[in-house]
C-alpha cells in the first residue's frame, strides 16, 4: 500500500516539474515567436547573443 502512495507522490511531482518547466518557458517568451529562434541558431559568429540575461531583465522591468 505504501509503495503505491510513494509512486503516486513521485509521479505527480515529476509531472509537476514538467508543468513548472512549461510555465517557465511560456513566461520567458518562448512561445511568442516560433520563427526566429530556429533561424537564429543557423547564423554564424554571433558575438553578443541577443537572448542573454539583459533581455529577460528588460522583460521583467516592463
Amino acid at each position: 500500500m505504501s509503495a503505491i502512495v510513494i509512486l503516486l507522490i513521485a509521479s505527480i511531482s515529476v509531472s509537476a516539474i514538467f508543468l513548472a518547466a512549461f510555465i517557465w518557458s511560456v513566461r520567458s517568451g518562448q512561445y511568442d515567436d516560433d520563427f526566429s529562434p530556429p533561424q537564429r541558431i543557423l547564423f554564424d559568429n554571433q558575438t553578443n547573443t541577443p537572448l542573454s540575461d539583459n533581455n529577460s531583465k528588460q522583460k521583467a522591468e516592463l
Binding site: D32, D33, F35, S36, N48, P50, L51, N54
Partner: peptide
C-alpha cells in the same frame, strides 16, 4: 547594444 526580432509581430 543588441537587437531582438519578434518575427510574428
Amino acid at each position: 547594444i543588441s537587437g531582438v526580432v519578434n518575427f510574428t509581430r
